[in-house]
């Protein structure tokens, strides 16, 4: 999939690794290339993964800028808003994190130049990985608003993606609105092609505020699904959705109940009982493994 983006040597080396195993690809200026395979990091060799950097492929100078140009289809302006937020969305839900020198004029961020590193995060689709959760989030003919928490890279997005899939194929034909701020949730590369979910309304590449406000008014959703909320920034919009009778499935970065409790604004979520279920994922029992399900008072109710 990245053959047109990456230099041939790197693309060929990646082709020798099973796509299902690759989670991340880290490219740094003038440094050995690092690949994260199922949570373990290796150096990328010409045709295999290496434990040491001795024969690792090294990224030449200036290559990163050309990769960014290609990621933008030679139209940097079309991705500059994303670039300012530190990432670029690419085909099939690939998210590319960008680091470099930030350019600002009069305190306003303009772009990132002299790009020094890129982090490609590859999406995966694990069909039916969320099925175990449905007994906790579905009761009396309705779904419970759920917040899925885990540290980065454990599978929140993969989990949400499967929830979208399960809901979209339900006979009840729910109105599902996906707020896909970073274009990761609904367009997914699956070895050979890009799968798009049917029966789902999608706002992509827009702020949650915009999507929540306009979506509720114009799309009349039963369920809103969104990724990586920021409690401080998004709580008002989520509260508005929940008090409008819409069920919300969202994810957040937090490794434990204590982490979640310490987040600014979380007390408000608890006191107002905005979410009825909290689900913690861990990678101890494999990707998308449920570590615990909690009720609206953050009391443990099962695994």
């Amino acid at each position: 999939m990245l053959d047109e983006i990456l230099p041939a040597k790197i693309a060929n080396a990646l082709d020798s690794i099973s796509y299902n195993k690759i989670c991340e690809l880290r490219l740094r200026n003038d440094s050995p290339i690092v690949v994260d395979c199922l949570g373990k990091r290796y150096f990328l060799g010409e045709d295999s993964l290496l434990e040491s950097n001795e024969n690792a492929l090294i990224l030449g100078k200036g290559v990163l800028s050309s990769i960014v140009q290609k990621l933008s289809n030679n139209s940097l302006y079309s991705i500059n808003d994303q670039l300012i937020d530190g990432y670029i969305s690419y085909l099939g839900g690939v998210r590319v994190g960008v680091c470099g020198e930030v350019v600002s004029v009069d305190g306003v961020l303009k772009t990132i130049k002299n790009i020094s590193s890129l982090n490609f995060r590859f999406p995966h689709y694990i069909k039916n990985c969320s099925l175990d959760l449905f007994s906790y989030i579905y009761a009396n003919g309705g779904f419970k608003s759920t917040l899925i928490a885990s540290p980065p890279g454990v599978g929140k997005t993969t989990y949400l993606r499967d929830i979208i899939y399960q809901l979209s194929k339900d006979d009840k034909l729910y109105n599902i609105l996906v707020v896909d701020e970073r274009q990761e949730l609904t367009s997914i590369y699956n070895k050979e092609s890009i799968i798009k979910f049917d029966n789902v309304d999608v706002y992509s590449n827009c702020s949650k505020k915009f999507a929540f406000n306009n979506g509720i008014r114009s799309m009349k959703p039963d369920i809103i699904i969104t990724d990586e909320i920021n409690i401080e920034k998004d709580i008002e919009d989520i509260e508005n959705a929940l008090t409008s009778g819409v069920v919300v499935f969202a994810s957040i970065h937090a490794s434990s109940v204590a982490d979640l409790k310490n987040k600014t604004g979380f007390k408000e979520i608890l006191s107002k009982k905005l979410f009825e279920r909290f689900v913690f994922l861990s990678n101890e029992g494999g990707v998308c493994h449920i570590a615990g399900v909690y009720n609206q008072n953050l009391q443990f109710i099962g695994v």
Binding site: L76, Y77, N80, K110, T111
Partner: peptide, 10 residues
Amino acid sequence: SLGKGDVSWE
């Protein structure tokens, strides 16, 4: 020269 900057630059 196209595609090298942000919208206003373009």
